[in-house]
Write a protein that binds this DNA or RNA. Sequence first.
DNA 1: GTGTTGTACATAGGC
DNA 2: TGTACAACAC
Length: 717
Amino acid sequence: MRDDFLSGLNPEQLAAVTLPHESALILAGAGSGKTRVLTTRIAWLVDSGLASPFGLMAVTFTNKAAREMLTRLTAMLPINTRGMWVGTFHGLCNRLLRAHHRECGLPAAFQILDMQDQLALIKRVMRALNVDEERTPPRQVQQFINSQKESGIRASACESYDPQTRRYIDVYGEYEQQCQREGVVDFAELLLRAYELLSRNAMLREHYQQRFRHILVDEFQDTNRLQYQWLKLLGGPDTAMFVVGDDDQSIYAFRGANVGNMRDFEREFRIGKVIRLEQNYRSFGNILDAANALIENNEGRLGKQLWTAAGPGEPVRVFEALTDQDEAHFIVEEVRQLHREGTALADMAVLYRSNAQSRLLEHQLFAAGVPYRVYGGLRFFERQEIKHALAYLRLTANRDDDGAWLRVVNFPARGIGARTLEAVQVAAREGGLSLWASCCSRPPGGAAANKLAVFVRLIDELSAEIAELPLPEKIDALLDRSGLRDYYRAEKDGEERLENLEELVNAAQNFQYEVEGGTVEDFLAHASLESGELQAEVAQDALQLMTVHSAKGLEFDAVWVCGLEEGLFPHENSLSAHDGIGEERRLMYVAITRARKRLYLTLATQRQLYGQTRYNLASRFLREIPEPLTQWLNRRPPSSANHGGYAAPRVQTGAAVYAGTQDLQGFRIGQSVKHGRFGQGVIVAAEGSGDDARVQVNFPEAGVKWLLLSYARLEAC
DNA sequence: GTGTTGTACATAGGC
DNA sequence: TGTACAACAC
């Protein structure tokens, strides 16, 4: 039995899986069988009686990873994995808070705000405080609040040395109180509350410390400070921490991830020997060598070198296109060719740094009739119709949820306008009440009072009617009673939304199958935490389009990494960030290591971005890949004139310069020129053609000037 | 209350 | 260039 799942492991994997009861750090490279090691470790612990299924906890970052772990465990062990503490940080904290809601001062039916909900609440608070949204953008306040919480700092403990920070803190404080009044928590709050609960309650802490003799953590490089502190609280003197991560794949510093946690862990848990999983089972040698060479350029790595028993395979193909159009065209043609040769579309992926790049690709794929699927974008539970339906459900569970109240009080329209809402909000603020409580105890006068009363009655009756129904029927009834179904039925483009609402009933049905005794609160928490792709995988074979970020953890036979230009990848915004280039390089490392057999790197020297043409230099990352590993498909950009009637490019001042090939009477962008009066300068932009051709020149002494080529006598120099 | 126009904005995105 | 959201008129 045991040999079953231990066979086939390499020596390092085997050593990791069968480690004795002690804390360990596993440095697991891309494609090194990390998930397998993690799940096999759990199976081995349980199978050999070293741990009970309920005496261990496993933490992942995504629900998908948690699900996969549970699925594999179910296949390996003859046990019911239900009830095991396997999940995401947020999911497990939610579980902890539900179980001890009284100890941490939350109502039993507390609701979870997603990012949208949180932003909406922040805006409401800011309006109540009369904070100017121009000078203090709500998004920045949101970031401020979340990063404070991730550092474990409450509003009362914040320090400010300037008026702007003072304003942030004021909003933070009021926001905290408002959340408390409404009985809602945001994502960061789930973690912070769980942390505070354990740090303040010694009995509870010791209970869990004794219970979890093994804690296993996946993707440790992505943990933030608070998550690491929380793990340390849960781990008692007898807990073995089994931590798996890859510092080279840390790509979420921008949202608080702290790679430093790996080094801290190594030190604080006195890890004697780090186990390195360096054998790669995914890619051919050239691809791995390219990745290794690239990442060598980063500083402060823990150090690791991927290798494979497979041969070198094909060279890394590099294609330099003239324009982004040509780049997309090239990719589409190569995809079709590979497809003809027998590679399934689903085994190919085009990766890009930013979402804006997908549009052009989609356009050309559509024109060529190649099926494709774009990842990212609106998730199921983030759709407005779903949010509306869930808001009704939230109100039946918790009347004080102002966000839900505001969302549906006048949707579908009930003649309750902005004036009335303003009055209710003012009254609620004065009385320190929720909107619901306020309009029940001190309703505004006038005709609106009636309409509000109708809404109150609707929610009360709805709650009573569905109280005894099973969850899916609750939602089904609510869709009718609220008028949502009728509304979208009448709407001319409402069909898809109507289908989504039916899908919500299905989702509730499935939820009931999966979670025995799942309550409305459980389902709502599930909806907040699992905003993900709920729709069944589309059966059609389709090319995969996604950002490099969302490709993490995936693999494909053939991968195109496109837009390899300075400013785009590495992204210009990363230049100013601390270790920004380092993180971009890790991102590139992740991109490269997605490919099994064939890797393409493409770039365009001229690209439309936000309606303007930009001229970019080739990405530095291309230079960091050794020549012998690559094959340049077109060393020189094609000088062909097959762009008949092209629009003359317009360039923004300050855009990266590139020697374009367009006819400017012998001049080109980026060229140094001399002018009779203005002296020496550099051409930074061009416009028009023929006699109307103008160039923009940056003269260090005279500034930036537009000059008509036919008049200004420019000299090349 | 709904449809229309106008303006600001545009890295990455898990829970 | 395209979208999202707010302010505006009907």
